[in-house]
C-alpha cells in the first residue's frame, strides 16, 4: 500500500506533470510563431484566456451568472477554443504582420490588455471577476489518483499529437519555407514565396495551440477567472520556457516548459513555509529571479538547452 505522505508526493508530481504538459503545448505554439516563423507574440495570455473562456462557456452547465448551458462534449470545447483563438489571431495578424515584429508585439499586448478588461467587465458573458467555477473536467473518478493520472494521460496524448504534427510540418517544405522567410525575408520573397501569407498561417496555428492550452488549463482547475490574463503567469513564463529550452527546437520547447515549470512550482513550496508577510514578498522575489534567469539565458545561452538543429543535406 502507498502511505499517505507518499501519496501526497505522487499527487504533487502528477499535478506538476499535468500543468507542465499544458505549458508544453503553449510553448510549442510559441515555438511555431517565434522559433520557426520569427513572429513576436507578447500576448500569449490573451489567446490562452480566449481559449479557456470559450471552452468553459461551451461545455459548462447552465448558470444564471454567465452565458452558458450549451453543455457540449469536452472535445468540442477544445475545437471551439482553437477556432476562436485562431480567428482572433487572424484579425490581429492581418493588421500587423506585414510590419516589423515590434508592431506585432504591441498589437498582441493590446489585444491581451483589452481582453483582460473585456473578460473582467462583461459579467453576462464571463461572470466578471468571480470567473467561471463550474468548468467540467473529464475523467472524474472516486479515486483522486486515478482522476489525476487519466487527465495526465489525456494531456500527454494531446501534447504528443501537437508535437508530431508540428515536427512534421516544420520538416516539410512548408517548414523549410518558414525558416527561409524568418532568416532572410527579402531572399524568400525574391524566390516567389508569399511571405505575409505564410507568416499569418504560422501565427494563427500557434495561437490555436495556445487556445487549446487555455481550454485544458481551465478544465484541469475546473475554473477560469480574469487573472488568467495577467501578463506574468502565462505570457512571460512561456517565453522563458521557450528561450531556455531552445527556440526553433520543438523538443527544446517541451523540455523548457517542464523544467521551468518545475523550478517555478518547487520554489513556491519553499516560499510557502515563510510567515505570511514574507511569503508575499518572497513571491515577488521569485518573479524577479525568473526575470534575471531570462537575462542570463539571453546573454550567455542564447540558443537554449536544445538548440535548433538545421539538417545539412547536400544534394548533387
Amino acid at each position: 500500500m502507498i502511505s499517505d505522505a507518499n501519496l501526497g508526493l505522487i499527487m504533487y508530481a502528477i499535478a506538476l506533470m499535468n500543468i507542465g504538459a499544458i505549458y508544453a503545448i503553449l510553448s510549442l505554439g510559441l515555438n511555431l510563431q517565434w522559433g520557426v516563423a520569427g513572429l513576436f507574440n507578447a500576448g500569449i495570455a490573451g489567446f490562452f484566456a480566449v481559449g479557456a473562456y470559450t471552452s468553459a462557456i461551451l461545455t459548462a452547465p447552465d448558470s444564471p451568472d454567465f452565458l452558458g448551458g450549451f453543455e457540449l462534449p469536452i472535445p468540442l470545447g477544445w475545437v471551439g477554443a482553437m477556432i476562436v483563438s485562431g480567428a482572433l489571431a487572424l484579425v490581429i495578424g492581418a493588421a500587423t504582420i506585414r510590419l516589423r515584429s515590434d508592431y506585432l508585439a504591441i498589437g498582441t499586448i493590446g489585444i491581451a490588455e483589452i481582453l483582460r478588461l473585456f473578460l473582467k467587465n462583461e459579467e453576462w458573458l464571463t461572470n466578471g471577476v468571480r470567473g467561471i467555477t463550474t468548468v467540467p473536467r473529464p475523467f472524474q473518478f472516486d479515486q483522486p489518483l486515478l482522476s489525476e493520472l487519466s487527465f495526465l494521460g489525456m494531456t500527454l496524448t494531446l501534447l504528443l499529437i501537437a508535437y508530431v504534427a508540428i515536427e512534421r510540418s516544420v520538416n516539410s517544405p512548408w517548414g523549410r519555407m518558414m525558416r527561409a522567410i524568418r532568416d532572410n525575408e527579402v531572399a524568400a520573397a525574391a524566390m516567389g514565396k508569399h511571405v505575409e501569407r505564410r507568416r499569418l498561417e504560422a501565427f494563427v496555428l500557434g495561437s490555436m495551440l495556445m487556445g487549446l492550452g487555455g481550454a485544458l488549463m481551465s478544465q484541469y482547475f475546473r475554473f477560469i477567472g480574469p487573472e488568467a490574463t495577467e501578463p506574468f503567469q502565462i505570457t512571460f513564463l512561456v517565453w522563458v520556457m521557450l528561450i531556455a529550452g531552445g527556440a526553433g527546437n520543438n523538443r527544446g520547447a517541451i523540455l523548457g516548459a517542464f523544467l521551468i515549470w518545475a523550478i517555478w512550482s518547487m520554489t513556491e513550496l519553499v516560499t510557502r513555509q515563510l510567515p505570511p508577510d514574507w511569503a508575499v514578498r518572497a513571491g515577488y522575489l521569485r518573479i524577479f529571479l525568473v526575470g534575471l534567469l531570462l537575462q542570463v539565458v539571453l546573454q550567455r545561452f542564447a540558443r537554449g538547452l536544445l538548440p535548433e538543429r538545421i539538417r545539412q543535406r547536400i544534394r548533387p
Binding site: F40, A42, F232, F236, W239, I243, I287, F288, V290, G291, L292, L294, Q295, L298
Partner: peptide
C-alpha cells in the same frame, strides 16, 4: 524580449 524581462 530582454525588455519584457526588465519590466518584470
Amino acid at each position: 524580449i530582454a525588455s519584457f524581462g526588465v519590466a518584470l
